[in-house]
Design a protein around this nucleic acid. Structure first.
Ligand SMILES: [Mn+2]
Ligand SMILES: [Mn+2]
Ligand SMILES: [Zn+2]
Ligand SMILES: [Zn+2]
Lengths: 160, 160
DNA sequence: CTCGCTGTTGCAAGAAGTTGCAACAAGAAT
DNA sequence: ATTCTTGTTGCAACTTCTTGCAACAGCGAG
């Protein structure tokens, strides 16, 4: 089950620039390996990629980078809030852009379909958690696992 | 940051039996390695343990089991709904008992404190997701990351 | 443009996690 | 109690991920 948002898409210079901006703003250096990783992330806006997949794409396209560099860099990008690690099922975690994503994700465990839900729709729950427990939800960009409409219906048929 | 519920606690025979029951009911064989793993899970009711931690405890106490067996067995137990893999931050996933846990977890990213929230309090959100998107939330036992009351307050002080 | 500081990289070694397979043992049948 | 079937285990080989470190290069200062 591959989960990508813009598989063979065009690069999106605006987004890529915005990412570079954030990296600089955080005081990180804009190196070649980082540019390569950002490029992959930019064309996969809305996608969820594993570190291995990112490494693979970079290798296909140009100068490969060392795996350890990829692992470390992705951690760094997460630390500055540019990307986010999402665990879909038991497979390795997947990286997902955070910038300009004011939504949450519903992920179907069966077919992998992801549905976007405006954060506003879930906000009331977060507010309630804060009121009752003083708990400040942080990862305002997370994935809720379950079964999508289509797969739910097929399941009912199977039971009949 | 270690997250356990009953660190050096007594074994809880009732819970352990309930687990054995579930394993048998699923048509799985009750082997020595599985008994060992269940024993660790039973004394750590409410705890979150990594596979490595489980392996470590078994090694300390008696006959060690092969790592591959542990990884495979834990996957099997998850498949029959006995345990659940929870990702707290970027560390390896942690196993958590599902049986008799009708609650969700608020996990503090800073101090690791976990707060239990009755599922009923979050149910309205799940219901809403179903009404609007036809989405059936499955993992009714998940972790919401954020900052607990205490840590939120310290942060405010730091800013001042 | 050149220099210098220091954050980053690639490499190598190791730890963690996965997979195929032959030997083994849980538990049903007799 | 004994036998038989087949799900499980431990081992070995492999892939993935992590960590320490010396060489390197981004980029600010001059
Ligand atoms: Mn998104
Ligand atoms: Mn619980
Ligand atoms: Zn689906
Ligand atoms: Zn806290």
């Amino acid at each position: 089950m591959t989960i990508v948002g813009n598989p063979m898409g065009q690069s999106t210079p605006e987004l890529e620039d915005a990412i570079h901006e954030k990296i600089r703003a955080a005081g990180l250096r804009l190196t070649m390996p980082r540019r390569a990783i950002c490029a992959v992330l930019a064309v996969n806006d809305e996608g969820f990629l594993t570190t291995q997949e990112i490494l693979g794409r970079i290798g296909e396209q140009g100068v490969p980078i060392d795996p350890s560099t990829a692992y470390r860099t992705l951690d760094d990008l997460a630390k500055i809030g540019l990307i986010h690690l999402v665990h879909l099922g038991s497979s390795p975690g997947r990286w997902h852009l955070t910038v300009e994503h004011d939504h949450q994700h519903l992920v179907c465990e069966i077919c992998g379909k992801t549905t976007l839900v405006p954060t506003a729709e879930i906000q009331p729950m977060f507010d309630q958690l804060r009121e009752r427990y003083g708990f400040q939800t942080r990862h305002h960009h997370f994935a809720i696992m379950g079964h999508c409409e289509t797969c739910s219906e097929s399941e009912e048929h199977d039971h009949a």
